[in-house]
């Protein structure tokens, strides 16, 4: 079923990582992405893996749960691996018919796949340990300086909150509509591309109608609950940096420095 994709899901646990301020987690994740592209050696990757491993252990999110989310992206991983493996020229180490594998290709394939796995695992840790609502709150606060430039940061954050809330609802709705139309003999699996696209109309129209109905109901409900924009709102979980967060900032920047040093000296 569609709703079992763990990517972007929150894993409820009580850990140091869960308790960190969302802002530090967002910044750390962004830096982590940059760091993965700074790293250019396997030693660097092992170092990054060790660091990530430590964070995962601290987060109390089971490895199996993280890898379940990875399954959905297996195709992309395999694709990356294969493309790199066959497409890069160099010293040939294996040849069969038109397939050639070079030493450089193998190296690049392993390298890219490694990087991608680390990237996915690391960034999914952000959503796994941070409630969607604190994630959007954190983003709103980080982007706050932009609101001085008339960027609607609160509205963007609110839209993300609502999107996160309604994705499962809309997926369920889609599932129901598909089944209902199939019961009326609709066929979504055969025919050429144009026909298939045309066959989607009986799904897309009801889905849009549903989305508009939800939007209308929700707007009404939000207004009834006194929603009037970002101004003057308080929070159930107010964001305040604690000692823990300062320590985390120090560690994150120390790690960044060490990665850069590693790149320069090895």
């Amino acid at each position: 079923m569609i709703r079992d994709i763990t990517l972007g899901q929150y894993y409820n646990a009580d850990s140091v990582i869960h308790r960190l301020d969302p802002r530090i987690k967002i910044i750390a994740s962004l830096l982590y992405i940059v760091e993965l592209f700074v790293v250019d050696s396997f030693i660097g990757f092992f170092y990054a893996t060790a660091a990530l491993g430590l964070v995962i252990a601290l987060s109390k999110v089971p490895l199996s749960f993280i890898f379940r989310g990875m399954k959905a992206l297996l195709i992309i991983l395999i694709f990356t691996f294969v493309i790199n493996l066959f497409m890069i020229d160099g010293t040939i180490i294996f040849k069969l018919w038109i397939f050639t594998i070079s030493k450089e290709g193998l190296y690049a394939a392993l390298f890219m796949t490694f990087r991608l796995v680390l990237l996915i695992t690391g960034t999914s840790l952000l959503t796994l340990t941070t409630k969607p609502i604190s994630l959007t709150d954190g983003l709103e606060r980080l982007l706050y300086p932009l609101s001085k430039l008339k960027v609607p940061t609160h509205e963007i954050a609110m839209m993300m909150t609502i999107a996160l809330r309604f994705i499962p609802t809309l997926l369920e709705e889609t599932d129901k509509i598909i089944k209902a139309q199939q019961a009326r003999g609709a066929d979504f699996e055969s025919g050429n591309l144009i026909n298939r696209a045309k066959n989607l109309i009986p799904i897309i129209v009801p889905l849009f109608v549903s989305a508009f109905r939800i939007a209308h109901d929700l707007a009404m409900a939000m207004e009834a609950r006194c929603y009037k924009g970002g101004e003057g709102r308080t929070r159930l979980h107010p964001m305040k940096y604690g000692k823990r967060d300062l320590v985390a900032y120090v560690l994150v920047f120390a790690f960044l420095a060490s990665i850069i040093l590693l790149r320069i000296f090895i």
């Binding site: 409630k131 609802t169 939800i214 609950r225 929603y227």
Partner: peptide, 19 residues
């Protein structure tokens, strides 16, 4: 379904007083 705003129960309940 269409009147709950947040994706965590307690955050949703907090929505009114937050506003």
């Amino acid at each position: 379904d269409n009147q709950l705003v947040a994706s965590i129960v307690e955050d949703d309940v907090a929505f009114g007083p937050e506003n």
